[in-house]
């Protein structure tokens, strides 16, 4: 009788140990077993990877000095007061004002700028409303000289409390955002949208061009006559 009792208790203990070891295997903090682990990780360097041959064992490093990474265009204005003034005065948006660019600009603005500057550009983004950031100025504030160049320059290098957003956006993104910011500024001031005026002036210049062309044609045809 006693022996069977002993056996029972041993069985129970074994059962408990097995079940405990099984449940402990499902630890959320460690990754699971894998079939053929060497097929999961490549020989080549992985994005964001860690490799001994690199400085700080980091794959993510800045381009070697004197080189330009693919798709990056050097920005010649310096991060100084003079550089900013120069960019404000002379830097112009190379992109054409199209609906697609404007739409993209709005989308990107919502992602990168809206949290602080507000979707309307009035400086009332959600981070301001939650008092994480304070004193974000509106684009329509008096005494602010906002131009193509000044917006682009601020995104490149950051301004005061704002950090540089050059690593998150590329050149085209930044110019598209610039378009949207100018539109927002105009609508805050109660003026017609910047993009509309641009389009109108473009249309007008195109008309002029075509008029010139037609007049030229006329003259040539007259000459031919």
């Amino acid at each position: 009788m006693k022996i069977t009792n002993m056996k029972n208790s041993i069985n129970i203990a074994v059962f408990i140990i097995i079940s405990m070891s099984l449940t402990s295997c499902f630890n959320k903090k460690t990754p699971n077993y894998r079939y053929m682990p060497n097929m999961y990780t490549s020989v080549s360097l992985e994005t964001n990877g860690e490799h001994e041959i690199l400085p700080n064992e980091q794959v993510n490093i800045l381009p070697v000095e004197g080189t330009i990474s693919r798709g990056w265009k050097p920005y010649d204005y310096e991060n100084t007061i003079e550089g900013k003034a120069l960019a404000t005065a002379e830097l112009k948006n190379p992109l054409e004002v199209t609906d697609k660019n404007l739409e993209q600009g709005k989308e990107l603005y919502t992602i990168y700028c809206g949290v602080c500057h507000g979707d309307k550009g009035d400086g009332q983004g959600i981070l301001v409303k939650r008092e994480k950031f304070l004193g974000i100025p509106s684009y329509a504030d008096k005494g602010r000289n906002i131009t193509d160049g000044s917006i682009y320059h601020a995104m490149m290098y950051g301004l005061n409390s704002m950090g540089s957003h050059a690593s998150q956006t590329d050149e085209k993104d930044r110019w598209q955002i610039t378009m949207h910011v100018l539109d927002l500024k105009a609508s805050l001031n109660g003026e017609p949208l910047w993009s509309d005026t641009q389009k109108e002036s473009m249309m007008a210049s195109e008309d002029e061009m075509s008029e010139n062309k037609s007049s030229e044609e006329e003259t040539t045809s007259e000459e031919q006559h």
């Binding site: 993510n60 981070l127 994480k132 950051g158 950090g163 540089s164 957003h165």
Partner: peptide
């Protein structure tokens, strides 16, 4: 992409 720390600092310079 795992954001680089300069992205964190865009806000946390201030916060």
């Amino acid at each position: 992409g795992i954001p680089s720390l300069n992205v964190c600092m865009n806000c946390h310079k201030n916060i």
